[in-house]
Design a protein around this nucleic acid. Structure first.
Length: 332
DNA sequence: TATGTATGGTAAC
DNA sequence: TTACCCTACATAT
C-alpha cells in the first residue's frame, strides 16, 4: 500500500512511457469498461501525483483519477524507461509482499545492485510483467505481446511498446477538469507539489489549532498529503512525539520540523523507491536492520520488540482502526 | 477451502 | 464508531 512516494514514482513512469502517446485502453475485468472505452485512442498528455492520488490527463480534457487504496497496484511491462533521477522504476509498483517489503523497487536495493538501471544511467529495458521479488530483473525478450492478463485487471493501458495494468484500486474514475480541481482542493499540501514554505504554513496553521491528536492529524489527507501508516509512526518517533498530543499542544517548532522531515523522507522515498526512515541511523545498525527486510523501521511493525534507542518494548494500539506503533519512553 | 492480514478511504449509523 | 469495498498471498484446517 502505497504511501505518497509510490504514487509519485508511478506518475513519473507514466510521464516517461505514456505521455505523448496514444493508448489502447481496456478493462479485462469489466468493471471499468465504459471508462476504458472513453479513453481508448486518446493521447495521454500529463501525469500528476498529489498525495496518494494520481491524475492522468488525456486529450479532450478527460482525466483519469486513480487511488490505489490498500491493495491497489500498477504492473508495468514491456519497454520501460528508467528515470534518470531515481534508482529504478520497473515492474510492480505500489504493492507489498507478505513480508512487508514495498515492491516499488522490486529488483534493486538502495545501492542499485541487481537493478536494471543504475542511478544517473537512464536506459531502456524490456521487463517481464508482474515483476516480483524473486525476479532478478533480467530482461525478458521473449514472451507474447501484449502480455497475458493475469488476475483481476481493472484497467489496461497499452502503447505500442509499454503495458500498464491496474488492479485493486479503491478509486478509478474519469473526471472533468473541474472535478480534478475539486479533488485536489480537498487535499492538504504535498511537499512535491506545493511551494515548501507555503505548505509549511498551511500545515502548521492547521495542526496548531486542532484539538485532534497529532497521530491522527498526520494521517488526515486534508491536513497533509501522502503520509500513511508507516510514515506516520516513523515521523512521530523521529520527532520523539507522543501520538496522543493534541495538535494545538505540539510546539510550533516541532510542527514545522514534522513538515520538514516529511519533505525529506518523501524525497528519499521517491528517489529510492523504499520507505527509508532510518536514514540518520548509524551505518552498522542500518545495515543490520536492512538485512531483515521487514524490520527496517524505528517503530513500525515492531510491537513488543525493543526500541532501537532505549530498549523499551514498542507498543501498538488501535487508532481509528489502524495500528499505531510507538515507543512509550522515547515518545513520552 | 477457509481465514487473516495489509502502507486506505468512504459512507452509513 | 462500524461496515464495507478492493486484491493477493501466507497460514491454518
Amino acid at each position: 500500500m502505497p504511501e505518497g512516494h509510490s504514487v509519485h514514482r508511478i506518475a513519473r513512469q507514466f510521464a516517461r512511457n505514456f505521455v505523448g502517446r496514444t493508448v489502447v485502453a481496456s478493462s479485462p475485468q469489466g468493471r471499468f469498461a465504459e471508462g476504458a472505452a472513453a479513453l481508448a485512442g486518446r493521447e495521454m498528455l500529463e501525469a500528476r501525483a498529489v498525495g496518494k492520488q494520481m491524475f492522468l490527463r488525456f486529450d479532450g480534457d478527460i482525466w483519469l483519477r486513480v487511488h490505489l487504496g490498500m491493495y491497489g497496484a500498477w504492473d508495468f511491462a514491456g519497454v520501460i524507461d528508467a528515470d534518470p533521477t531515481i534508482a529504478s522504476a520497473n515492474g510492480r509498483m505500489g504493492q507489498t509482499n507478505q513480508r512487508g517489503t514495498v515492491l516499488d523497487e522490486p529488483i534493486m536495493d538502495a545501492a542499485g545492485e541487481n537493478s536494471l538501471t543504475s542511478i544517473g544511467a537512464p536506459r531502456r529495458a524490456r521487463v517481464h510483467v508482474r515483476m516480483s521479488e524473486q525476479t532478478t530483473g533480467l530482461p525478458d525478450e521473449e514472451g507474447t505481446w501484449p502480455p497475458p492478463v493475469v488476475g483481476q485487471v481493472r484497467l489496461r493501458l497499452l502503447t505500442d511498446e509499454t503495458c500498464a495494468d491496474l488492479r485493486g484500486p479503491t478509486a478509478c474514475e474519469l473526471q472533468t477538469p473541474d472535478e480534478v480541481a475539486a479533488s485536489i482542493a480537498k487535499l492538504g499540501p504535498d511537499p512535491l507539489v506545493v511551494d515548501l514554505a507555503e505548505g509549511e504554513e498551511r500545515f502548521t496553521a492547521r495542526v496548531r489549532r486542532a484539538p485532534t491528536p497529532i497521530g491522527l492529524l498526520l494521517m488526515d489527507q486534508s491536513v497533509v498529503s501522502g503520509i500513511g501508516n508507516v510514515y506516520r509512526a516513523e515521523l512521530l518517533f523521529r520527532a520523539r512525539l507522543n501520538p496522543h498530543t493534541p495538535g494545538r499542544d505540539v510546539p510550533e517548532e516541532t510542527v514545522r520540523s514534522l513538515w520538514r522531515d516529511w519533505t525529506r523522507l518523501l524525497a528519499i522515498g521517491v528517489e529510492t523507491g523504499q520507505m527509508m526512515t532510518m536514514d540518520d541511523l548509524d551505518a552498522d545498525a542500518y545495515r543490520r536492520a536492512m538485512a531483515h527486510r521487514d524490520d527496517r523501521h524505528w517503530v513500525y511493525h515492531r510491537a513488543g520488540l525493543p526500541c532501537r534507542v532505549c530498549g523499551t518494548a514498542i507498543v501498538v494500539e488501535e487508532a481509528a482502526s489502524r495500528k499505531l506503533y510507538w515507543c512509550p519512553r522515547c515518545q513520552a
